[in-house]
Design a protein around this nucleic acid. Structure first.
Lengths: 115, 115
DNA sequence: CGCGTACATTGCCAATTGGTTATAGAATCA
DNA sequence: TGATTCTATAACCAATTGGCAATGTACGCG
């Protein structure tokens, strides 16, 4: 249940997120399932191109397919995004620490600014 | 000051994060600056390969270089990571909403579980 | 059945990527 | 100065990527 952060997984997640078309697709799917045909209109590319992007997203686990008669709906999968967030948050701790240090510095009275 | 989420920027940030060697470099830099020589030992690759990775990280803004005599220290830059986190968090809102709905459902008395 | 619709797959191409070795440049030290 | 160290750049290569057009496949409907 807890997100795995092995290299293979993160490779695929971040690679999937590194393309603007795929990010647009994800943002679209955020508001509900969509077919390749719908996504194609939105992307301004050919249908095979969009199918390929969907495959990349699926292999990264960011999306799953669900068949409904002749239509296949793409549904966003949030778990991998959480994995990505967990990785990034390893650094955000530092942001917090840095802000804490800054705050401490400002409260310590000495206000020699180093721009 | 507020993170920009334009496509170009996110393309480069996520692409930079999509390589395990670069992620290892970032994790190393989390605990302080390092030279290419140090990073090379850590990466198990040739020095030019590591220099290339550093360049990718720099172009994504994730790292900056600071010369100290004959050594050049790489220093982690947190702003782009925040940009990445902001993008990802657009979806985490959904996670929260989903959890809220679940919670509401559980509290609504009906406890028919659908595994 | 035969047709249309929705989608995947294939084959092709140019560009990018991640690695290498070899070379060049910059700064320190003897 | 010349030798050494640290790093960048160049040249090359195989593999991957992102796009296209063409073709194949699966499903529903008349």
């Amino acid at each position: 249940m807890e997100p795995e952060l092995d290299d293979e997984t993160l490779d695929r997640i971040f690679a999937a997120l590194s393309d603007r078309t795929r990010r647009r697709i994800l943002l679209r799917l955020r508001s509900g399932p969509a077919t390749v045909t719908e996504l194609t209109a939105l992307a301004g590319l050919t249908q095979p191109a969009v199918s390929k992007h969907c495959k990349v997203l699926e292999e990264a686990g960011l999306v799953r397919a669900e068949r409904d008669a002749q239509r296949i709906h793409r549904i966003i999968e949030l778990a991998p995004l959480i994995r990505a967030a967990v990785f990034v948050s390893q650094f955000e701790v530092q942001v917090d620490a840095r802000l804490d240090r800054l705050e401490a510095h400002l409260q310590s009275g000495t206000d020699k600014e180093r721009p």
